[in-house]
């Protein structure tokens, strides 16, 4: 009996030897909006409610995405976002709207605040296009503005930003994604001021 137990223990240790050794360390990146923020010319009197950004299942994972071949997507194995990108983008957009003063008030949906407008957004794509090194970062966000008391759609638009990547790795992609975020969020704020006026 003791012999059998020892044999099984040796086999288990032999199995462990087959597991891969220590890999590249995981890096966690913080998505930022480096700015700057342009103050609004004439603030609108209403309150804007910002709904959490809709996101496809692929982008719910908190890893940076890339594409080496058109029509495909993949995740970096060792580059993670601190926070899923859609959630982070929603927060960054709210920060930018508040800083610009485009509306009298900006609040998240379901925050216990009654609003006049509602902004619905959807993250369509956010990846490092690595087909041609070092590649570009592509960000696509769809936005629609709704008048809540009438339930009417005031406007809808897709915003696109394409920013070249400086280095062919996750760090370079993350830096370019920050710039793309700034570009798209700036466009969205300017568009909102026109549509809601």
């Amino acid at each position: 009996m003791k012999r059998l137990f020892c044999l099984l223990a040796l086999l288990a240790l032999a199995g462990c030897s087959a597991l891969p050794g220590p890999a590249q360390p995981v890096t966690y990146y913080v998505l930022n909006d480096p700015g700057p923020v342009q103050p609004a010319q004439a603030p609108l009197p209403g309150v804007l409610l910002l709904r959490e950004m809709d996101v496809p299942a692929f982008y719910q994972e908190a890893r940076l995405a890339y594409s080496r071949t058109p029509g495909t997507r993949g995740h970096y194995e060792f580059a993670y976002w601190v926070e899923p990108p859609a959630k982070r983008l929603t927060w960054l957009l709210r920060q930018r709207l508040e800083a610009s003063g485009a509306f009298a008030g900006v609040a998240p949906l379901a925050g216990g605040i009654v609003g006049d407008y509602q902004l619905n957004t959807r993250l369509i794509d956010f990846y490092h296009d690595a087909a041609t090194p070092p590649g570009n970062v592509l960000l696509l966000i769809e936005a629609e503005l709704v008048r809540r008391d009438k339930g009417s759609l005031l406007g809808r638009r897709i915003f696109v930003a394409q920013v070249p990547v400086a280095r062919y790795d996750a760090a370079g992609a993350a830096a370019a994604m920050d710039l793309a975020t700034t570009q798209v969020l700036e466009d969205i704020v300017a568009w909102l001021a026109k549509v809601a006026a």
Binding site: G21, A23, Q24, Y66, G74, G172
Partner: peptide
């Protein structure tokens, strides 16, 4: 998505393959 990831237990046990590495990533 989680169910899809768990459909490949080898990846869970042995980690990512060389083919799935992103730009600039390496297996030591």
């Amino acid at each position: 998505d989680t169910g899809r990831a768990l459909a490949n237990p080898a990846r869970v046990l042995y980690g990512p393959s060389a083919k799935s590495l992103g730009p600039g990533e390496t297996l030591r």
